[in-house]
Design a protein around this nucleic acid. Structure first.
Lengths: 342, 342
DNA sequence: GATTGGCACTCACCGGCCAGGAGTGCCAGT
DNA sequence: ACTGGCACTCCTGGCCGGTGAGTGCCAATC
């Protein structure tokens, strides 16, 4: 009974504090939210919540501020999922639909996310090690010159040119095309590479020896695949939003700026979010970096199975979690859809 | 005579102000620099310098601060070139020598520059403008529809479709193919574009007028090339150094952070520096962006002929120009050397 | 037992006030 | 042309007291 009200009080405090950026007192609470009790009652509840570690008092005779633990409870149990409005979804769509290629999608997503949440946005490039081969196309520019087009599930398109020693007939080309696609399509990039290589070695006994053309094509494809395996990149945007960190510049903004320059750190920040479909929230000191004790990370995976890569935002612990989570999720979904279509 | 001293005073003020970050007064000046005159004399000089617009007084009874014009004079005529020390050069060498590829060189340079100058460093990516045309292929899909394939040394392949007004014979196609390849193959992308354009204008007298087909093909090729050129990227580092902008956060740091996210803006900032071998300094409002009126840009070109791309730093107008210029120049030279070798 | 009204108490915040001091401009003297 | 002296400005920092928001506690009430 009174337990319910206490949680309501905590929720109200979080909401008010996020909105006003000022410690919230008992009187203001009962006025702004229509709790049908007196300020004194609220004070008792507040004292209890403080004892349990959910609230904190900057100094005597000041209002209360949520602790990390308080935010955690709020996020886990108290926040009502704020559904994205029709307008928001339309904004997302119109912002992302103009994207011409993968690069563009990523950069637009960062901007969009930064704009929607008014926080620093971080988007991880699709990791190639996790992306799969969607299709391989072979085009005969001339009878002895092939254009290889490698299309990945991440939306990335890689093109290579192969010069053949001898001209290749249309039928042979078609056969080769279906062969490589059979071996590689749908496979994770590393598996695809080995499958392709197997193609030209297995042929060695039993079947006719692999044609010079097949060898050349496979070699180039494998080369193209391994070329880009290592580049796990991260794009950051909206750093200007750090300007709203009015207080505590040296203690908050500087370490954050430093962290944002370290790709490795960013990847670790996002990394934990890549699993299951849900939005992950890491509040304050819960994370691995004590310099970022006053910041939170809201992230989620995207792509097929949400397992392709991660995106999210990082901001002060004092943030609008429901809204931010909704925005992150909405963008992730939309990006997934775009990558799926193209 | 007294003109010389005035310049000495200006130099001393700039140096002291940069070092202390505080308006500098007449008494402190005569103490720190061994000018053999009295404070009163200095005051007269200061008043004169202020009349001429080189100094500014935040308020009566405060010391003087250099204006943009003052810094400009200082940079142009008063700063003694600070030679890089042996130790610095060794630091640069050991920092950059470990680089494994172009990406690595660029990223290391940004860091190095940020570290040396304690400012925000900006390095423009050279990859694409640096790549050469490996081959151009023309394929007749139908007699009046050509597929252009542009293959670059970087391994990138660009394809365009051209619709011709009139069908083109096989012989003409072959001739055109060898013509464009002769002109463009092996050339840097920019040179290739001009060579191609020359092809269709030189033809105008003496040789048969350029066919409509040739014009269309060249136009599309040039378009594809310039498309590629605009893909220029910029890498930013050391934003954490913005934390030292103690004062005027909203007015200085925020617009700067915003500018740093705009590739286009960055390119324009650096762009003017690409010419001649010298280090370019843009002070305060001299630049094209009024939001960045309180920041300066120190930049220079690098690569063969210093024309490949630009690198530099951006920081408050109140900065150590000689030291920064020396660092920027030293890094640019070293990067040029590395690119030349590899 | 939960809730409430009352009451004394605590501090941060704000504005005013005052001395201290750095720095200036000006003027008369060398 | 330079210098010493002097009056003046005005920022800075410390001190002080009033104000008000907010608290904790207690006795009274539902």
């Amino acid at each position: 009974m009174q337990e319910d009200r206490r949680l309501a009080v905590l929720r109200a405090i979080v909401e008010d504090y996020v909105a006003t950026e000022e410690p919230v007192g008992s009187k203001a609470l009962v006025e702004r939210h229509h709790l049908n009790v007196s300020p004194a009652t609220i004070r008792n509840d507040m004292a209890a919540l403080e004892d349990e570690g959910y609230l904190h008092q900057p100094h005597t005779s000041a209002g209360r501020v949520p602790t990390d633990k308080g935010y955690r409870l709020f996020v886990d149990r108290l926040s009502t999922v704020k559904p994205t409005t029709q307008a928001e979804r339309r904004a997302i769509a119109s912002f992302l639909d103009g994207a011409v290629d993968l690069d563009d999608v990523i950069h637009r997503s960062v901007r969009l996310l930064a704009q929607l949440t008014r926080q620093v946005a971080v988007v991880q490039y699709p990791t190639l090690s996790r992306s799969t081969v969607r299709h391989i196309e072979l085009v005969a520019l001339t009878p002895s010159r092939l254009l290889l087009v490698l299309i990945l599930s991440s939306g990335r398109v890689e093109q290579r040119l192969v010069e053949l020693d001898a001209p290749l007939g249309d039928d042979d080309l078609a056969a080769l095309r279906s062969q490589v696609n059979l071996a590689a399509t749908g496979e994770v990039i590393a598996d695809a590479a080995t499958a392709l290589q197997a193609l030209v070695t297995i042929d060695a006994h039993g079947a006719p020896a692999p044609s010079a053309a097949a060898s050349a094509v496979v070699e180039t494809l494998v080369d193209a695949m391994s070329d880009h395996r290592s580049d796990e990149r991260v794009v950051v945007g909206g750093t200007a939003n750090l300007a709203r960190f009015g207080d505590s510049f040296e203690t908050s903004v500087r370490p954050l700026l430093e962290a944002l320059e370290e790709q490795v750190v960013l990847l670790r920040l996002l990394g934990e979010a890549t699993s299951g479909g849900a939005v992950t929230v890491r509040i304050g000191a819960e994370g691995p970096f004590q310099e970022l004790a006053s910041t939170s990370v809201v992230a989620t995976g995207y792509g097929p199975g949400d397992a392709l890569a991660s995106l999210g935002i990082v901001g002060p612990t004092r943030m609008d979690y429901p809204g931010t989570m909704a925005a992150v999720r909405a963008v992730a979904r939309y990006v997934s859809r775009i990558l799926d279509e193209s």
